[in-house]
């Protein structure tokens, strides 16, 4: 197990490093001259040259890459052109909000999925089954920007219960989290429902029944733990989709998280910030997948045995 963790972690580090280098090189080669973009329209050639010196873009690209990587390792991702603040500081402000949003959305989606999906699998013809089907269909067919806009009009503009956007506290999380949760729920619900149905037919469920365990215990402990494994895979695959949904939600709700920051950074051609965000999000992506792989091993003793 220990060797497995070490090997997977090393892989993750190499992936992040490769992404960092690629992002740097691609931005430097494909994008315009940052100094030309940031310097005012009326700036003289000397002023533009001064910008180049400030940005360090007057140096050979290999040297720039070296400086960048050396800084990145020490936690210094440079200074944002657009915000004139250290990139790490900007990300440190935005990231917790995005993680809170993604976390709330995932938690919300998972809670509904687990409760509703389990009940729907246990009693397919009950109201729970119908509700699960409706939620899955609605979530599947309605994109985040649409549900988001609808919720804003209803709950923020007409009813005035919640803020329509921005970040003013926990209440600002509610609408975007619900919108994102709705978009990621259908897949989860479908996967859990069908894996739950399969698991409920398993012999060990019969055993648990034969020993007088309650239906609740059987469903939410004996069956769920087994049914969660396919769901876990889906969540791993869905992290990208989740992040995408979060970005859309951040734009729709003007929520100042990493997604909006990334969009601003891109539109402002703020390369240090684009680089920083890409590296941080890529790292998160890699870490989440790593954690899921390890969680897999943790939940399933059979995998744990194979790996050791």
């Amino acid at each position: 197990m220990k060797r497995y963790v070490i090997r997977r972690t090393a892989q993750a580090v190499i992936i992040v490093l490769a992404i960092a280098i690629t992002v740097f090189v691609v931005l430097r080669l494909s994008a315009g001259d940052p100094a030309r973009i940031r310097a005012p329209v009326f700036a003289s050639a000397e002023v533009v040259e001064q910008y180049r010196r400030d940005f360090g873009t007057d140096r050979p690209i290999v040297e720039q890459l070296g400086t960048f990587l050396l800084g990145a390792v020490q936690g210094d991702l440079g200074t944002s052109f657009r915000f004139h603040q250290p990139v790490t500081e900007l990300i440190r402000t935005a990231l917790p909000r995005t993680l809170a949003l993604a976390g709330c959305a995932l938690a919300l989606s998972l809670s509904v999925t687990i409760i509703l999906g389990s009940l729907a699998a246990l009693r397919p013809r009950s109201i729970w089954g119908a509700l699960a089907t409706i939620l899955a269909t609605v979530g599947q067919s309605a994109p985040v920007f649409w549900t988001g806009a609808l919720m804003v009009i209803l709950f923020a503009v007409n009813l005035g219960w919640l803020p329509p956007g921005g970040f003013t506290g926990v209440s600002s999380l509610v609408l975007p989290a619900v919108a994102v949760a709705l978009s990621i729920m259908p897949t989860q619900l479908r996967v859990l429902r069908s894996s739950m149905r399969g698991v409920l037919r398993e012999e060990y469920i019969r055993t648990a029944q034969a020993f007088g365990l309650s239906d609740r215990r059987i469903t939410f402990v004996y069956a769920l733990k087994n049914a969660l494994l396919p769901l876990l895979t889906v969540i791993g695959v869905d992290v990208g989709y989740l992040l995408g949904g979060v970005i859309v939600a951040e734009v729709v709700f003007a929520f100042p998280g990493v997604g909006e920051l990334a969009l601003v950074a891109l539109n402002a051609r703020d390369y240090p910030l684009v680089q920083g965000i890409t590296i941080v999000t890529a790292s998160i992506f890699v870490i989440v997948n790593l954690v899921i792989d390890l969680a897999y091993a943790l939940i399933d003793p059979r995998i744990r045995m194979e790996q050791s």
């Binding site: 398993e202 060990y204 019969r206 055993t207 034969a210 020993f211 004996y222 087994n226």
Partner: peptide, 18 residues
């Protein structure tokens, strides 16, 4: 379980693997 208990045919399938 308390009055009537059962030992199933295939213990591999009958025991919860997780």
């Amino acid at each position: 379980g308390a009055s009537i208990a059962m030992i199933f045919q295939d213990p591999t399938a009958a025991l919860n693997p997780l």
